[in-house]
């Protein structure tokens, strides 16, 4: 799985994307967040206020209960500020 980060989240993590090999018991975005929070505390700040984070699965806006698998591309980013 590819996990991408944008804006201040990317700067906080220190990289724009990472490859993860997901354990088979992780089947939705919420479980992925819990998994990331467990492997490294640097993720905690990002997911502290989950309602402020936007999620995309395969470049489509998604939610915490969206189903995911190892072949997906997941992105976490703050609310958008273009225009």
């Amino acid at each position: 799985m590819v996990v991408k980060y944008f804006s201040w989240i990317k700067e906080h993590i220190g990289k724009s994307e990472e490859q993860l090999d997901l354990p088979s018991n992780i089947t939705n975005v919420n479980q992925l967040i819990n998994y990331l929070n467990e492997i490294d505390e640097k993720y905690n700040i990002i997911f502290e206020k989950k309602e402020l984070i936007k999620i995309a699965v395969n470049k489509i806006y998604s939610s915490f209960d969206t189903k995911i698998s190892n072949s997906d591309e997941i992105a976490f980013f703050p609310p958008v500020t273009g225009g």
Partner: peptide, 13 residues
């Protein structure tokens, strides 16, 4: 323009 401001993934620093 209204929808682009809220949906299109761009970020300004």
């Amino acid at each position: 323009m209204d929808w682009l401001k809220t949906k299109a993934p761009f970020w300004k620093v």
